[in-house]
Every structure is written in structure tokens, then in C-alpha cells.
């Protein structure tokens, strides 16, 4: 079972360099931050100095985007080693990755692509998660992907996502925006995820904003992280927290980044949702 005790059961923010100064002096109770370790895979310099300063002060979550666990090949050794060095040096409260792929034959797509939905793929992903956990010497969380393409078998995506975590001993990072994005783009309702994902396996929740984009006269909802969290996603959060109790909830923002204060308002909304839920409803 994943240790849920290390990230606060409250709301945090993704940490962007634009906000270093403001975030560092943030005194909001229960605050925590998340970073992408790839952005700190450098030999030294100001980036790592900032990370050290944040790790000294706040609980931190390292949310990887580059291991390509859903790909056909085993996790890249060099990438794993760089990740391990960061984790060993900074001892983050949580480490997570994606149920997705991003690399093939020496090209990195800077994206989180949906894996095939079949038994062979499930077996591979389980093996990749296990190898990663073994190498890092700790349990990780895996995050559910967004869908734009109805890849074969996509209807079963929630099931194999949960199954991969169960079999590998990983926890779940449940992204509620991604399930809203899936529902907008393919025939997979967000309720079908909520029905399948066991609340007690969820050790972190993500919220983000998405943006519609027209592609060949069709509007596709893009998981762009460039806007405020939508009302639908807030509603899904209330439903999920109402059923399972408070979780570490993160507001992600990667683009069109507003001032830190504006993100704090969203962060406080998430914190409020959890504070009004009776504490006895927890799965932990």
C-alpha cells in the first residue's frame, strides 16, 4: 500500500519558475508543491538551488513526464538514473509518473500518448512500473492519460489502468481533468472512471484546465493546462472527495501562467471543498 501520509491531505500547486519568489514566501497552511523532475535534470546552478530551497521548506511531489512506461521498450536506464539521483538527493514526499508513452526508437515526443489497451500492453506496463519502483527503491503513483484518439479498446482503459497499479503495487494519481477530457473527445464518460477507480488506491488528485481547439471543423478538448479549472472538473472533485474523503489535490498549470495569487485562489477552492467534507469519510 502506498504511504499516503507524506503529502498533506490538502491542496498544492505545480511550481513554475515564474513563481519562485512568491511561492517561496507563501505561508498558506498545508501548502505543498509539485515539479517535473525532467526540468531539474541538470548538473547544477540556480534551478537546483531553488529546488533545494523549496524542498527545505515544503512537502514536494516529483511528477515525471519522460519515463514512457506505456511504451514498447523498457524505461531508459539513463533517465532512471537521473531520476534516482534527484530523488536520493531531495527525498520528495511523493513520486509519480504516467500511464502513457512518449518515446519510440530514439525520438521523444514531448507528449503523453495513450498505450495500447490489451493484455500484452498491460503486462509490459506492469513490468515497466515494477522495474522503475525497484530501481528507485520506492513506490510510485501512475496517472491516467487523456484521450484524443479512440485507440482500439479505449473503453477498457480505466480497467487496465487500475489493474496495472494493482499488479505492480503502484498507487494512483487520479487526474480529474483527464477524465473530463476523455469524456469530451471519445465515448468514455467520466463516471465510467469513477465507477472503476478504487478511492483507497488514490494517493493524489490532479485538477487542471483544458482548452477547446478546432481541428478540421471539429472541436477537440485539449488537455492544455493553460486555463482555470472548469466547473465540471470542480463538480467531479466534490463528488470524488464526498465519496472518499480528503486527498492531496494539485492544481496544475503549465502554460498561459497567471500570477501566483490567481493560482492560490484556485488552490484555496480545492482546500475548502475538502474542509467541508466530514473527516471520517476517508479510505485511508
Amino acid at each position: 500500500m502506498v504511504d499516503l501520509s507524506k503529502l498533506p491531505l490538502g491542496a498544492g500547486l505545480s511550481l513554475k519558475p515564474e513563481h519562485y519568489d512568491d511561492a517561496m514566501v507563501c505561508s498558506t497552511d498545508g501548502m505543498w508543491f509539485e515539479i517535473h523532475p525532467e526540468n531539474y535534470m541538470v548538473a547544477g546552478g540556480p534551478r537546483l538551488a531553488w529546488l533545494q530551497a523549496f524542498c527545505n521548506k515544503f512537502p514536494m511531489s516529483f511528477h515525471g513526464v519522460g519515463l514512457s512506461l506505456g511504451g514498447p521498450d523498457r524505461p531508459d536506464k539513463e533517465h532512471l538514473e537521473q531520476l534516482k539521483q534527484l530523488i536520493d538527493r531531495f527525498s520528495p514526499a511523493m513520486v509519480s509518473e504516467h500511464f502513457a508513452w512518449s518515446k519510440l526508437d530514439n525520438i521523444y515526443f514531448a507528449d503523453l500518448l495513450p498505450p495500447p489497451v490489451n493484455d500484452a500492453s498491460l503486462n509490459r506496463i506492469v513490468a515497466h512500473i515494477e522495474e522503475t519502483q525497484e530501481y528507485l527503491g520506492r513506490t510510485i503513483l501512475i496517472e491516467n492519460p487523456s484521450l484524443y484518439l479512440p485507440v482500439p479498446g479505449f473503453e477498457e482503459l480505466p480497467q487496465i489502468y487500475v489493474e496495472a497499479a494493482k499488479r505492480s503495487g503502484a498507487g494512483l494519481l487520479f487526474d480529474l481533468n483527464n477524465i473530463a477530457v476523455c469524456a469530451a473527445n471519445v465515448d468514455l464518460s467520466y463516471q465510467s472512471w469513477l465507477d472503476v477507480v478504487p478511492g483507497e488506491m488514490v494517493a493524489e488528485v490532479h485538477l487542471a484546465g483544458a482548452s477547446p481547439r478546432e481541428i478540421k471543423q471539429e472541436v477537440v478538448l485539449i488537455d492544455s493546462h493553460d486555463a482555470a479549472v472548469s466547473e465540471l472538473v470542480w463538480q467531479i472533485l466534490e463528488q470524488f472527495i464526498g465519496e472518499h474523503g480528503p486527498k492531496p489535490v494539485l492544481i496544475e498549470r503549465d502554460d498561459n501562467i497567471p500570477g501566483f495569487e490567481e493560482l492560490l485562489i484556485e488552490r484555496d477552492r480545492a482546500a475548502n471543498i475538502m474542509s467541508i467534507i466530514p473527516q471520517e469519510i476517508t479510505d485511508v
Binding site: P17, N39, W50, H63, S146, S211, S224, H225, D226, D255
Partner: peptide, 26 residues
Amino acid sequence: CYGIALAGENGCGNLAKTHSCQGQST
């Protein structure tokens, strides 16, 4: 002085920007 460079930022959101840049032609 802690300078920051924003080059080479990985993120986990798709970039939905429309085409300010030539490379983005559909």
C-alpha cells in the same frame, strides 16, 4: 541573484496554442 532560464521546460499539458508560429500549420 538567482537568474532563471525557461529553456527546455518539460510539461504534461498539451500545447493548444493556435498558430502564432509557422511550424504549427495544420
